[in-house]
Nucleic acid binder design. Structure first.
Lengths: 194, 194
DNA sequence: AACGACTATATCAGTTCGATATATGCTGAA
DNA sequence: TTCAGCATATATCGAACTGATATAGTCGTT
């Protein structure tokens, strides 16, 4: 899904700055299943403004660029819903440098392999906490789309967050159950190659 | 990880054509945790050849471009191992159009939501079968890196495949356990908004 | 005091991808 | 029998995306 559509989605929950939209994707409600960087968010917002799908209000700031607060127009909201209804969603895409590296574990020092696996596990525990809708450390952007007026998480977001957490749990559990066997097998593999 | 490094990794198991390397990423051993397309594989192979990291032999073919079979040079193999040892692996990156769309489930017809969830589940069951090292339908490229000379899967690949399958299992299970609750909550949510 | 993170806007060089071009053979459905 | 889709091969390119950079202050930690 292109970044203009992602930005429209980000604004479905209310107004936001470009910086806030980026936060939604970096460690907010979209962080575990979409990616959008500043390098594409600002051009996308510019394009959406030109197309009449969003509008913005500017607030002067001292010593900083003026703050631009974007919101959807009626056309923008309709365009977004239409896009969700009509477009066939692309295949999921997953990239993992650690998993790629572990594919070649036999060529690596066992200490590095252990360190990579531990780093991988920590990252997924951290992500689990980030996803958790009940996480008290979470500072959801007020304009995030996932909560209704009473602050309750919406069913769709709850489902998606739950699924994200299930993936994280499974990852951490698999590592807990299988790391030592891997280390053992690697030692055997290496001694057989000597 | 850039596509040149991915190509070096792909050639760690032996010689391969550009087309075969693409297959390794599309539905072969790397398919569930890395992505590389023809648009970047061929330029990468050209660059690696210029840099002396790979070399190729050309076989004439009728009615087709001549087949180029690439293999690592000694420099190429060393460069690859050095890259794995020295580079800090980037954060995992996951993109899911379906999960993004489901975040806005409240705005969609319930039939579409159900269809998306079912599609998502089917994709992960399919991926599970694709990953399975014991899948008899799998036609691993002979030059894939994951097996030793006896055809046994290597420990690193086995671990990574197992983890991939655990993620798929968790996904399918979560959907099985939670889909009906989501549908019910959506119906409640929509009737409360009327 | 220094440094890193945060808050704001924006741009750009480099990288990547999906579509396209070329062209045949194979397979299955109509 | 015909046709469409897929497989097998090489390669290119326009469009999209990213990470670094620029600008510049504030805040908290070491």
């Amino acid at each position: 899904m292109d970044v203009r559509t992602l930005c429209l989605g980000a604004l479905m929950g209310g107004e936001a700055t470009g910086y806030e939209i980026r936060k939604m994707f970096e460690d907010g409600p979209f962080s575990h299943f979409q990616i959008a960087s500043l390098g594409s968010i600002y051009p996308a917002l510019t394009k959406l403004t030109q197309d009449g799908l969003v509008t913005f209000v500017e607030h002067e700031q001292e010593n900083r660029p003026d703050k631009k607060i974007y919101r959807l127009t009626s056309d923008g909201r309709q365009k977004f819903i239409r896009t969700l209804l009509q477009n066939r969603p692309a295949e999921d895409r997953y990239r993992s440098d650690i998993l790629f590296t572990l594919t070649f574990a036999e060529e690596l020092p066992i200490e590095l392999t252990e360190a990579l696996i531990d780093e991988f596990s920590v990252r997924y525990e951290t992500m689990n906490n980030l996803i958790d809708p009940n996480n008290p450390d979470k500072d959801d952007c007020a304009s995030g789309p996932g909560r209704d007026d009473d602050g309750n998480i919406k069913p769709g977001c709850k489902f998606v967050a739950g699924l994200g957490q299930a993936m994280c749990d499974a990852t951490v559990k698999f590592i807990k159950d299988n790391k030592q066997d891997l280390i053992k097998d690697l030692k055997t593999f290496k001694s057989n190659k000597s």
